[in-house]
């Protein structure tokens, strides 16, 4: 599903104009990524939590050359479903 389809679904729910929806989406994404970059988390009740995960440095081996590497630590964005959403996923049996 493309973003446009998603936005039109949002539009039909809210009744907002295409321009406003698009603008708000961009702003929302911007705010959210700003929060994540700053190391903060955003919890949407009933949906889940957007947060930052720190991955420690680790050793890795190139399978071809057998050479070992030290992979530096990094930070990655992550999403964790909340309780309500989890429950719903648990009961979801596919889309047939």
């Amino acid at each position: 599903m493309k973003e446009n389809d998603f936005l039109s679904a949002v539009r039909s729910e809210t009744g907002f104009s295409a321009k406003l929806t698009e603008q708000m989406t961009r702003q929302l994404v911007e705010i959210l990524s700003g929060m994540l970059s700053a190391g903060d988390s955003l919890t949407i009740h009933g949906f889940g939590t957007f947060e930052l995960k720190k991955k420690e440095e680790r050793l890795s081996v190139n399978p071809v050359s057998g050479k070992r590497f030290m992979i530096p630590p990094k930070r990655v964005p992550a999403f964790r479903p909340g309780a309500t959403l989890k429950e719903r996923i648990k009961n979801y049996k596919g889309n047939e």
Binding site: M1, A9, L28
Partner: peptide, 22 residues
């Protein structure tokens, strides 16, 4: 908007779609 935004992600996902947001 914020409410609908996340609710829609959930809806679409349960419909079996992949939701992409730029």
């Amino acid at each position: 908007f914020a409410r609908v935004f996340f609710a829609q992600i959930e809806e679409q996902v349960f419909r079996g779609d992949t939701v992409k947001i730029k």
